[in-house]
Design a protein around this nucleic acid. Structure first.
Lengths: 188, 188
DNA sequence: CCGATTTGCCTAAAGCCTTTAGGTAATTTC
DNA sequence: GAAATTACCTAAAGGCTTTAGGCAAATCGG
């Protein structure tokens, strides 16, 4: 019998694609095995559990997102950097809803890769904040504010909370980013 | 055989309590049946499906939260109102993590009760914003900003994102609310 | 108050998902 | 080419969801 060539890597990658197609919650070890035309139990040689699979998908997404954000922010500062960073997150969430949902998956204790990815993300936000000259602890407050707002907006938007009401969500978004920029500029 | 006296109402209520104890994701029709000392299939006379049960729990939580917020905001304005409203959400999330998680449950199409509860929430935020004199569309933008930030913060905080780093999450929170107050005051 | 209807809870069963145990065959290593 | 490793398999147990069909308790009409 020919082998499918499964590895933890490929499963996480395929799981990420599957998540975008059917939704992160619908990603199961069974569904993934079906995709590879393989028996369910076979995947358990590469993945410890269903939660482990999801954690791996989360890592894929978190890393991919950090890479894109890093590229986008490079060479920019101030309002420009802030806007581009926020857009990367939002665009990623729209393009890869399953992967984005995966980034919210928190296993009991995060893996080292996830901790590292998390560090990269907050480091990027801090880089953007360099353009606003804030001291500690204000800088940490600002990181939390930006993270909360951007993530919260994406979350509510994708839940449909802003749909069917004027102004459109697309119109509110840049104005909210503008407001954050103003706020950071005058952070007491 | 004595009857347990199940109704959709009581199941939703018990489901909400169970959610706080074991986590919203762990609330299953089976677990609930076990709590009532009743066969699983019996619940299906009162609840259409697992998703229906979760939607009912979401409605319970959304309504409860709107009630508390309405009480807290009554008779307050400006920064005071904003701060109290935000605290109600955050305290509710800490006290009732399962219920709060339930508020994020979005079934395919929301029930009329959920739509109504959602309307109440945005209406409350609008009431708070009356203290800041904003015209449309700025007011809607501001509603979205506040909703995103408050919800986003609670979400990240409960995921542990802010844990183990200085300043404590409790310290950042009021400063972020302050910053939002300042921002709203000077919304261009 | 009693028979008829409704309603609440039950048993049974099928389908899907997770996870473990233990086996066979393909691949790699020496 | 033999030995060791690795990839995938079959089997099986246990949990959750959901539907179908049945009995008994509560309620209603006369």
């Amino acid at each position: 019998m020919a082998r499918a060539g499964l590895t933890g890597e490929r499963l996480a990658q395929a799981g990420a694609e599957l998540a975008d197609e059917v939704g992160f919650d619908q990603v199961t070890v069974s569904a993934l095995a079906r995709q590879f035309g393989v028996q369910v139990a076979s995947l358990y040689s590469h993945v410890r559990s269903s939660a482990d699979l999801k954690a791996r998908i989360a890592t894929v997404a978190l890393t991919e997102l950090a890479d894109q954000a890093a590229t986008a922010v490079a060479g920019r500062a101030g309002r420009d950097a802030l806007s581009v960073l926020a857009d990367v997150y939002r665009d990623y969430a729209r393009k890869h809803p399953g992967r984005y949902a995966a980034t919210r998956f928190v296993p009991g204790s995060p893996t080292p890769e996830q901790v590292e990815a998390g560090r990269r993300h907050s480091e990027l936000v801090r880089a953007v904040l360099r353009g606003y000259d804030l001291d500690e602890p204000a800088q940490t407050d600002a990181v939390r504010l930006l993270g909360s707002t951007i993530h919260g907006y994406i979350q509510l938007e994708s839940a449909g909370t802003f749909a069917f009401t004027e102004p459109s969500s697309d119109d509110s978004w840049p104005r909210i980013i503008d407001a954050l920029d103003t706020l950071l500029r005058s952070w007491s």
